[in-house]
Design a protein around this nucleic acid. Structure first.
Ligand SMILES: [Mn+2]
Ligand SMILES: [Mn+2]
Ligand SMILES: [Zn+2]
Ligand SMILES: [Zn+2]
Lengths: 154, 154
DNA sequence: GCTTAATTGCAACAATGTTGCATTTATTGA
DNA sequence: TCAATAAATGCAACATTGTTGCAATTAAGC
């Protein structure tokens, strides 16, 4: 339901990219880490730690939930993934939002997520914050509404 | 830590206002509901259901956690309160953000929250969404950064 | 004061998240 | 290729958070 066009090619590319980042920072490339990366990449929805465990289990792979929590925490710190605020799930960060700015639109009917980026918006928002002395580092925001599909159906 | 100037006068005003809304919609004005409202109003931070339970217990008032969950759910539906996405807590909505648009800045050092409103920002964001067919109903977004106090200390 | 529908409390349970420590594994370089 | 070793994982035990069905209570209206 994450409305980003993710083809198998891109998945491979992005997974490899993430692995390079892990390596560059001195983290081991372990089987569990690769599996969590792949799950986040392939699934078109935000995944909670337990979602990921379920998905992997269905593929005959068992990871302890503690391990998954720790891996997701690492990914978050490295900006390889980020939380979806409203659901508490995690999504894999696409290459294009490396800047650390994540804006989501969430459809209240079907739960569809759409991520977008707009520099002017970030700038405007940062300026507003600045006016009250706040120094913005990154935006992780969600808007609520109705996606085009659900809108047509009404 | 919620940087909104909330004086005892305003608390009384806003609590009364919320009670009118409850009444107008045919909901009973019960002791538990008044207590949860007051706790949200008086506390300067977002409160989780269990936070609220703790606070009230310290005042010798016991509410079952199930009750608190149900009350918060009702408040949310009536737009008397809304969730703080990053913490999972709830904040009481001030009168001025009745429009249903809630923008927060969260300090990653001290956790301070600052809520603000900017029509131009909402408009810009809605337009962007519209471009991809998304119909925005309300914004509930959070930016991350450093508040003025923490910035000075560095 | 009654009546009654709405609300709350309770019990039992399910899901989510955390910590300390033993075991395993990926990396390095001999 | 194989040991050494630091890093990562698994496990157990626990803590916190959230849900459901049903009985008891309560606020609102007469
Ligand atoms: Mn992202
Ligand atoms: Mn608000
Ligand atoms: Zn939709
Ligand atoms: Zn601060």
């Amino acid at each position: 339901m994450l409305h980003l066009l993710i083809t198998p090619d891109i998945i491979l590319l992005v997974v490899r990219d993430s692995i390079q980042i892990l390596q560059a920072q001195g983290y081991k490339i372990t089987k569990p880490r690769k599996q969590v990366l792949k799950a986040l990449e392939e699934t078109q929805e935000p995944l909670s730690p337990y979602d990921i465990q379920r998905i992997l289990r269905q593929q005959g792979k068992y990871l302890n939930h503690v391990t998954i929590y720790r891996i997701l925490d690492l990914f978050r710190r490295l900006n390889l993934a980020h939380r979806v605020l409203s659901s508490g799930g995690f999504v894999k960060c696409a290459l294009r939002d490396k800047q650390g700015c994540h804006r989501l639109m969430v459809c209240r009917c079907c739960g569809a997520l759409q991520e977008f980026i707009d520099d002017k918006l970030c700038q405007h928002e940062s300026e507003l914050a600045q006016n009250s002395g706040f120094h913005t580092e990154y935006h992780l925001s969600e808007s609520s509404g109705i996606c085009s599909d659900c809108y047509k159906k009404q």
